[in-house]
Design a protein around this nucleic acid. Structure first.
Lengths: 254, 254
DNA sequence: TTCAATTGGTATACAAGTATACCTAAACAT
DNA sequence: ATGTTTAGGTATACTTGTATACCAATTGAA
């Protein structure tokens, strides 16, 4: 064996993961390619080097590269090697502002429609009860809807509020873009402050089913509480945004 | 067969996923539990119901429930059923503001230290070159570092800039919290505007290795460009934040 | 032509995930 | 006591992912 290539060797497979090695490798290489770590025009990355880097076998590497080939990221030719073909980063996306008012404004501009999935009143979780300062055995009004862009669901919303005010909200009302306005009118109180938290999470089967995305796909999770002037939380919204379709953008003067 | 329980049946396994069914189910149930969809005190969710809901077999459901049991979310007793035990949501976390200045401020308050992984100059990707308006064959200065909290890496940063200004930046300088200040001094220009985009992504092997998290774990990816008064991008930062440890929070008056 | 490099493939072996079908054990109500 | 409900388990069979150790085919250079 000739010592021609330096070892890299700080990356290793996740042997606790249930995700097959060849998928782990394919995804990792995909990100390296789209982030420009390999010269797109030509050459690079031989099977043997990859076997060494990821400490795995012929077959596993070949399966990984087959997947990259299927997905159109590389071409492979006997005797020549593997060449990077496409280097496209993300496909399409919506850009949203991070502060609530900008988010709302940005979302209005999108050419999307809303579909109400259901409106119910149930006993809800402690977490929701606490956020809305409601009693533990009290029923709560709950509305679920999705946002659809070109026939594709892109985000999923659940809203909670006091049933005594919201019982009269119709499916038609609930399908309107400006849900806060609808609620304000139902509750009879002006919303003066919104508290928003934003998390990065992955999709489980419930969300995958609604949004039609794979299990484990990245998501933004946003939880908003809407407060009256007196500071009381009137209304709670939980939203999931497809990570492959949404980007939050801000420009800050320093 | 008695028709005692209504069908739910809109959720289905992701049969294209490489993640085993029992993991998909366990993760889905975990989220249902922590989001309070099952009464924590007692009862609920029998094996047969789950077999029906997820359209799978005895063994698969049992493996899923074993996993939930291992993770401490349920207890199972023969003849009685499965009871929800803990309902803890997320463990610990940092709260960051979404706008850049708030983020910077929030991060300073954290009791963390920075470790510089390496400083190099290389040919970088088209994407980085474009953002910094540099020539395609031009070398670029690159610095990688991680933020460590109680011995655990929590975020991973890569910075790019023009090598003619940054060549003199030492590892010690690079380990300082206020990297913008360091760069400003090196480049000799005041930064006046920051453009930030925030994405939700999942970890690949490269990031998993650095942050010590599982493959597929959720992450925030933030890309910041730092502009001078003239509008020129002087500096580029790419950051990954552990999704299980960071929350972005804003409060907006309406 | 010959050789080295590189992708592609075969054979064998083992482990894990899953399905089907059936059986066992504990708890409780009647 | 008996039966129902529910978790736990067995047996068999199939598929997929992976490792090891080979071999085959293509390309280009010496």
């Amino acid at each position: 064996m000739t010592t021609k290539k330096r070892k890299k060797e700080n990356v290793s497979l996740d042997r606790n993961s249930s995700v097959p090695f060849f998928i782990q490798i394919a995804e990792t290489m995909k990100r390296r390619i789209v982030s420009g770590q390999y010269n797109p025009g030509k050459q690079l990355l031989t099977g043997e080097e990859l076997e060494n880097e990821f400490q795995t076998s012929n077959i596993t590497i070949r399966k990984a590269m087959e997947k990259l080939k299927e997905d159109g990221f590389v071409e492979r030719r006997r005797g020549l090697g593997t060449t990077v073909s496409k280097t496209d980063p993300a496909p399409l996306g919506f850009e949203l502002g991070t502060s609530f008012d900008k988010l709302k404004e940005a979302i209005k501009k999108l050419n999307t429609r809303l579909k109400v999935l259901d409106i119910t009143t149930t006993i809800s979780s402690e977490h929701v009860q606490n956020l809305l300062s409601m009693g533990s055995e009290q029923e709560i009004w709950q509305m679920k809807r999705i946002r659809i862009y070109k026939g594709v669901p892109v985000s999923y919303y659940t809203y909670y509020s006091d049933p005594v005010h919201c019982a009269g909200i119709s499916k038609k009302d609930a399908a309107k873009n400006d849900i806060i306005h609808t609620i304000e009118q139902a509750v009879g109180v002006k919303i003066r402050r919104v508290r928003q938290i934003l998390r990065s999470v992955v999709s489980d089967l419930d969300i995958s089913s609604v949004l039609g995305i794979p299990f484990g796909a990245p998501l933004f999770f946003s939880e908003n509480t809407y407060h009256s002037a007196s500071g009381k939380a009137m209304f709670l919204g939980q939203s999931y945004f497809r990570g492959d379709m949404f980007v939050f953008r801000t420009t800050s003067p320093l």
